[in-house]
Amino acid sequence: MTATTTGILDILGPVMIGPSSSHTAGVARIAFLARKIFPYPLLRARVSFYGSLARTYRGHGSDKAALAGLLGILPEDERLGYARELAEREGLAYEIVPVYEGPERYHPNTAVIELWAADESGEKSAERYIRIRGASIGGGEIRLQSIGGFEADLDGSLDALLVLHRDEIGVIAIISHILAANRFNIASAVSHRKDKGDEALLVIEVDGVVPAGIVAQVRELPAVREVVYVPSIRA
């Protein structure tokens, strides 16, 4: 058995608006991280609930929680209760879809967040779409298990850099060199590629907060297509 990484404040927490840590707070956190990963002006959003969430999301306010997360509201914030009204005020078009028969491999509490972003002219753009699958595994703890078609395992406990890059020799080495040169410790680095030489997603969890200037250095690398910085959801 692997050693537990859970801490005191994971169990004594989160501080949250009721009624469910897994179905309210966890869902808000999944959507919050999804929005951080896809930081573009949103055209619309689709939230699909699987398993227990599909059957019980109304009573748990999971729909409000998901909208809150998409609006950058964390589980502790009282505004979570009015997220539907806030979404309307912000002009966020959304649909909530319960999926009663989901894939067997999905966790029993799964939310899939799909986001579409406007391009500069405000029109719908085929390039700007992402699908993120998150599992709410209990007590408000979550795992993002799929990000934009790549398998993942991100729990939001640490700040993370998500780097979309061409799968070629040396990219990971250069990025870790940039972080090391600026004295950032890499807690984990996992690369997921679609195929050899194809696109790959590198997920780097770091101790501490990486300044925007260093993130920009990574973004400027020739093989790098996109970088997003995802802050920790821990208090």
Partner: peptide
Amino acid sequence: EVNACGGKVVAFPTAGSC
């Protein structure tokens, strides 16, 4: 009961058992 009514609580370990 505060949790059931959508009030602020600390999940410990969960909201339903807080």
